Amino acid sequence: MDSPYSHELRIAIRAVQSAAKISQSVLSSDDKGTVEKDDLSPVTIADFAIQALLTATVHSVFPDDNFVGEESAADLRDNPLLLSRVWELLLPLRDDEAKSLCKLPRSPEEMCAMIDECGFGEPGGPESGRVWVFDPIDGTATFVRREAYAINLALLEGGRQVLSVVGCPTLPAHAKGPIDNKTTGLGSIVFAVKGHGTYVRPLLETAREPALQKLEPHAASVSVADLRAVSCYHMLDSGVDGAHDAIMARLGIATRGCDLLAWVLRWVALGLGLANMTVWVYKKRERTGKIWDHAGAMLLFEEVGGKITDIDGKAIDLTVGRKLAANHGFVAAPRNIHHLVLKAVHDVLHEQGKANLLA
């Protein structure tokens, strides 16, 4: 695909392919070196190793760019055994480092420094220039259970999404919906460049799979009757009880559709046309999304005709910090009927006595 970001795209795809190798080597293991973070979410040795790999690779090519990622290396510095296990995950990639275009840290100390390059990074405001955002394993809770997860890599310029590359090691390139956390396949990469569309390809080229497919703008002009949802129905308690089902009932959506934990995979499902709407209302106004769960991946849906706002109808602001503190929740739908989905959200929240969740 020709675009102003062809070089960045080539580097990003190769980095995601190598990251997928790391994740798959850990996926089959019973002991994933899981640590519980302060927010009670899990992190594994794969998360640390992949963030180090992605940062080192992109930094070696674009040394003046900035980085934001989910993890910091504090737990590794405090736990020599955990540090050793993460370092050992990178060693098998040494043999094909040049061929894969990847750049690996040269020592455990450099590995920790690369992780912290992201872990303490901030996206900055509209004048922030180029910022790469990484989520090494989105869906760690399902990853630990050997289920669906994603590797998210995004490039922002001045806080605007310009490039998205998402590795989906468990999702086949030509998946048919609806899908859930247990859907398995050979794996795929879904990517988008601003103004140039959304594409899907196999995680690795094979003789049986087409190398690349551009996705048609499936969300450009559909009716409410055509809506198909993606959400998380069984694993999160952060959403408003009953509101999501009521909103879908108000819109006449008869089936729940795709059921996915990882937010990045939900954006992938929307980009691929396995669904074309999602709504999420947090129980508390102060609860917010995190930039690495959404940056870049939202572009996959926008490039096929989707529109994404928060529940107040405001555009998602990726410049305010590591948390999306300027927004509450998400409403994503085909551009021409987004206003109708947003109205259904407001109507249901008013009827349920939860209008306080609106601005």
Rank of each mutant, 00 (worst) to 15 (best):
V68D: 00
K176F: 11
L261D: 00
E109I: 13
D96V: 11
S23Q: 12
A207P: 07
R77S: 15
A19L: 09
V224W: 06
H338D: 08
E71N: 02
L27I: 11
S72F: 08
Y282P: 12
V281K: 00
K99M: 13
E205D: 14
V190T: 13
A262M: 00
F191V: 09
P172N: 06
D347S: 10
V144T: 12
E71G: 03
E351A: 15
F134K: 03
R228Y: 10
F62N: 05
C102M: 04
N79H: 12
L82W: 10
L163C: 02
P210L: 11
D138E: 03
S25F: 04
R85E: 15
L357Q: 04
L227W: 02
V222H: 03
F120D: 10
Q24P: 06
M277H: 07
L342N: 03
L318A: 07
G158R: 00
R285A: 06
Y233L: 15
S41H: 12
L215F: 07
Y149E: 05
G257H: 09
L204P: 02
D317E: 06
I22W: 00
R145N: 13
H294T: 01
R322H: 06
V304R: 01
A297C: 10
S25H: 05
F330L: 15
T170L: 00
I316A: 04
L340A: 07
K176W: 07
A19D: 09
V224M: 12
F330D: 02
K32I: 04
I189Y: 06
L357E: 05
V86Q: 00
E117L: 14
L89A: 09
T183R: 02
H234E: 06
H7C: 11
A229N: 08
K290S: 13
A98L: 14
G195A: 06
C118A: 05
K37Q: 13
G242F: 15
E302F: 09
E122F: 10
I22F: 01
R285K: 14
S18C: 11
E127T: 13
L83N: 06
D116N: 12
F301P: 04
R287G: 12
G273S: 05
Q24R: 10
V224I: 15
R77K: 13
G121D: 08
V240K: 02
A315Y: 04
D312R: 04
P123N: 05
I253F: 08
D245A: 14
E286N: 08
G119T: 11
P92I: 10
L83M: 11
A148Q: 14
K354E: 14
L76T: 12
D75M: 12
G187E: 13
A73S: 15
I311H: 03
V200Q: 03
T44L: 01
D317S: 06
P334Q: 07
I50P: 00
N336R: 03
T170Y: 01
K37M: 15
M114K: 05
E71H: 04
F143Q: 02
Y233F: 15
H346A: 08
E157K: 04
M1V: 13
L76P: 07
H218P: 04
L156S: 01
I253H: 03
P136M: 06
I137D: 02
H59A: 11
A12P: 09
G124I: 13
L299Y: 01
D75K: 09
L236H: 07
K354P: 12
S223T: 15
K284R: 14
I137W: 00
L272G: 01
K176Q: 15
T142F: 10
V345Q: 04
R77T: 14
L342M: 07
